[in-house]
């Protein structure tokens, strides 16, 4: 676990470094957030819901992800979710819909399997490896950001 934590800390540091580098380009506003490694798992035949994952790094001020949206040829609706261990034991897991996700300044929030995810409700078509689609993330401060999500197996 310790090595994982260290790896995560290093990843966060690297992410912050990347953000600073981006800031040096000029263009981006001080409240900008950076979204990286956006991916969705390919879906099985008959699977009607999917999930997208990514890393979101806050800008110079605290921000909050409010909504996510995709074109209707990807999914009917998009929701922000968190997978949580339900009470009562036996390793029961369930999902909780979030009304937003805090992205503290210069911190990285990881959306990953078994944790936070963007749920794609009623997929219009299966998600196929190698394809990609647009996801519009709307932040309280940074406003709407379009992210390209690539479809992968793992």
């Amino acid at each position: 676990m310790t090595s994982l934590r260290i790896a995560l800390a290093v990843a966060c540091l690297a992410a912050s470094a990347g953000l600073i580098a981006c800031g040096d380009d000029g263009g981006s506003s001080p409240s900008a957030v950076a979204v990286r490694d956006a991916w969705a798992r390919s879906t099985a035949d008959g699977q009607t819901a999917g999930a997208a994952y990514m890393k979101i790094t806050g800008g110079s001020v605290d921000d909050r992800l409010l909504t996510a949206a995709t074109p209707s040829d990807v999914a009917r609706a998009v929701e922000l979710h968190e997978t949580v261990v339900a009470g009562g034991g036996m390793g029961s897991m369930t999902m909780r819909e979030l009304d937003g996700l805090d992205v503290p300044a210069e911190e990285t929030v990881q959306m990953s399997p078994g944790g936070y995810h963007v749920m794609l409700v009623d997929l219009a078509a299966p998600l196929v490896v190698g394809r990609s689609f647009d996801l519009v993330l709307t932040f309280a401060n940074a406003g709407p950001q379009t992210v390209r999500v690539s479809v992968r197996d793992t």
Partner: peptide
């Protein structure tokens, strides 16, 4: 740190195991 969350989930399950 927020990034810890899925890990914490896994680690809590692992502790259970």
């Amino acid at each position: 740190m927020k990034a810890d969350r899925p890990l914490r989930l896994v680690s809590s399950v692992v502790c259970l195991v």
